[in-house]
Amino acid sequence: MSKRFKDHPPQPEMNRRDFIIRSAKAGITLGTAAAIGYFLYDPVGPGAPVEKSSVALPDFSVPEAGKKIAIAAGDDRIKTVNAALKALGGIECFVKKGDRVLIKVNGSFATPPSLCATTNPELLAEVTRLCFRAGAAAVAVTDNPINNPESCFALSGIGDAAQSSGADLIVPRESLFANITVPGSNFIRNWPVLFGAFHGVTKLLGIAPVKDHRRSGATMSMKNWYGFIGGRRNIFHQDIHTFIKDLALMIRPTLVILDGTFAMISNGPTGGSVSDLKQTNTMIVSTDQVAADAAGAALLGKTPADLPYIAKAEHAGAGTADFEALSPFRVSTG
């Protein structure tokens, strides 16, 4: 046997005492390392800075009007919106002489009005006229659409409707956005919002169609505020229900008008054919956006429980999901 294969020099055997001491030392070392790691662990991580917002959106609700909802049945949008507003006491209860009104439409897509993927232009024109008739000093219409804004407003008919009825059309541009943080919000923290559109505004109305939405289950009054958000907002689709709750906390509208004359019951939110629509002959007008969406869920064959954002918004204090508790005014235009 060669020398290099010789046995190592004999090592003294480890006794029990040595073994226990070494094991204890190893255990203490591992335990200390784990404890330090646990102590230093930051479950949130170093996200983007949350600056204190220098701007905030006002509350546009009319406290003396209280929480109300009207549900009008009929196939003529002009008649149903007038009937619903009359049931609530008339638009004069909400829009006063000299008010500057902002109407947030759903103009997300550059699609024709026939697809009902966007706010109906005739309905928009009628509501604008009603605001002026109530004494509004100015009415402006806006949205920050998914597609190119000019194309959306032109092809959806919203642009023509706004201008023909005397409203100003606010096309979003960089200078109109400001970062805001919404108290109680999970996501709207130092995030760009179409703040410039609110300049001088005293009343805010939302007009939205009732649509199926592949991610959130539905898009109605509350999700309509998504169009006030700027930036790379599609990242919020990852937790869409919580984000819609955030939107409901961000916007406290004067009124929401939920157009369920036709409901897009499949392939939403873009649709793609009149075959995706169902004539549901309903117009919902409410001072409570959560109640409006809860009532609108049925038009899509859903219950409020099928749309988790409704419960989240209610829990956050944005309104009530129990719209029946508001004793809805139900009217029919025949």
Binding site: P46, G47, A48, P49, N144, N147, N148, E150, S151, P172, R173, E174, L176, F177, A178, P192, L194, G230, G231, R232
Partner: peptide, 28 residues
């Protein structure tokens, strides 16, 4: 290195990626 973390660096990156206020699609 952690004490030197600059959140603005990440914000700036996001802004360049499209976290700006207004997204410009191609205008037909």
């Amino acid at each position: 290195a952690q004490s030197l973390f600059d959140p603005d660096f990440y914000s700036v990156t996001l802004l360049k990626e499209g976290n700006g206020a207004y997204r410009k699609n191609s205008l037909p």
